[in-house]
Design a protein around this nucleic acid. Structure first.
Lengths: 141, 141
DNA sequence: CGTAATCTCTATAGTGACTAGAGCTTCAAG
DNA sequence: CTTGAAGCTCTAGTCACTATAGAGATTACG
């Protein structure tokens, strides 16, 4: 096992520049290099990068992952922290689902009611122009 | 009706710097100014900014909104374009919901199975470390 | 009318999590 | 030994804002 960055990328599904970026921000440890300064990775790197990737797929932020990987490195510790991170994230995800579901209904209504005539009668434009909506945060998806 | 930027912000729920940003990127027209160079807005600005805000809430990207506002300004045009934008977005939203729902199940399973002992037996960490997963795109939330 | 509090101005830089490009060097195959 | 893919560093760009600094304008109150 002595993988180039490209090989590691292929095995983990993480792009090459992203791997270098993770190293830069200290999420992935700097690996040994060849004489010509090319990175060479071992099994541990594949495991850690897979962990990071899966965590990102699940929507965990890099800061949360930083905590999770440090927990993983210290297996005698209590996992209450990991549990808490996962629970918090679960709440976030549930909020997003609720928000997107509301959005879907609104879009469906917009599209169904659009008879595709002139804009003057268009329900899509009309719905968007309608300002009678709660003022929540904009980024709640 | 001669609103300061702060007043406009309060009425539409869009933050002051965001309003200036929208003007900068040409989403909101530059309003007239007082002698001291302060922006003053009328009814039309309130309407347009509400439109923009609601569109953003619904997850439309700024580029899509640019098209939508130009459609709104030109009410004799066909609304097929607006309809198309909404439909495309609906498909996107449905994908996100599906993705998040799958994610929720995984998180729920993780959290439920965590006995909160040591990290060595933690299901949260274990699930994340499990690399036996499909390689989809990372940004599909 | 004076002054203090608040608001607004511009400009620049920072956020998160990458992504893209330039211009070079190294490595593995033939 | 040559070729060309893959690697290297570094900088800048993405999206949609958000934050900060330091100045000037406006408003409310006494």
């Amino acid at each position: 096992m002595d993988l180039s960055i490209g090989e590691l990328a292929r095995r983990t599904g993480v792009k090459v520049p992203t791997i270098r970026y993770y190293e830069q921000i200290g999420l992935l440890p700097a690996p040994p290099r060849t004489e010509g300064q090319q990175r060479r990775y071992g099994k541990a790197a594949v495991a850690r990068l897979s962990f990071i990737r899966h965590s990102r797929e699940l929507g965990f932020e890099v800061e949360a992952i930083r905590t999770l990987v440090s927990l993983q490195d210290d297996p005698d510790q209590s996992c209450a922290t990991a549990d808490q991170i996962a629970k918090t994230h679960l709440v976030e995800v549930e909020k997003r689902i609720a928000s997107l579901t509301a959005l879907r209904s609104e879009l469906q209504r917009m599209v169904e009611e659009c008879a595709c005539g002139r804009v003057a009668e268009c329900r899509v434009i009309e719905t968007l122009a309608d300002s009678g909506h709660r003022h929540g945060r904009l980024h709640d998806f």
